[in-house]
Amino acid sequence: MIRILLTTVLPLLAPAILYGLWLLFARRQARDLDAGRDSLAVRVPWMALLLAGAALTAISLLYFGISSGTDPWADHRPPALRDGAVVPGGVR
Rank of each mutant, 00 (worst) to 15 (best):
I59Y: 14
M47S: 07
V44K: 03
A74V: 11
A16M: 12
R43C: 08
V42H: 10
I17C: 07
L33W: 04
L5W: 03
T70P: 03
L21K: 07
V91W: 15
G84Y: 00
L24N: 07
I2T: 08
L33D: 14
L24Q: 07
M1C: 04
G20A: 12
Y19K: 01
P79E: 03
R37G: 13
A52T: 14
A80I: 01
P72Q: 13
V86P: 01
L6G: 00
A85T: 02
S67N: 15
V91N: 10
A14I: 12
L5G: 04
W46I: 00
T57Q: 15
V9W: 10
P11C: 06
L40R: 10
D34H: 10
V9S: 11
D32K: 06
L40S: 14
P11G: 05
T70L: 11
I66R: 13
L56T: 04
I66Y: 12
L24M: 04
V86A: 09
S68V: 04
W46E: 02
I2F: 08
A54L: 15
L51P: 01
P79K: 00
A14D: 13
A54N: 14
P78Q: 04
A80F: 01
S68R: 09
L24H: 05
A26N: 07
A55T: 09
L23P: 09
A58V: 13
P79A: 06
L5P: 00
V86E: 07
P45I: 08
T7F: 00
L18P: 04
L49K: 00
L21S: 15
L18F: 10
R31I: 12
V44I: 13
G90I: 01
L51I: 11
L23S: 14
D32R: 08
P45K: 06
L51K: 01
R77N: 02
V91G: 06
A48G: 09
L21H: 14
F64T: 13
L33F: 06
L33R: 09
R27V: 14
L49A: 10
L21D: 15
P79R: 03
D34F: 06
L23D: 06
A30Q: 04
A55G: 09
R92T: 13
W46D: 03
F25D: 08
L49G: 04
G84I: 01
G90P: 00
A35Q: 15
G20T: 11
L23H: 12
P88S: 02
L24V: 07
P78D: 05
Q29R: 12
T7S: 10
T7K: 00
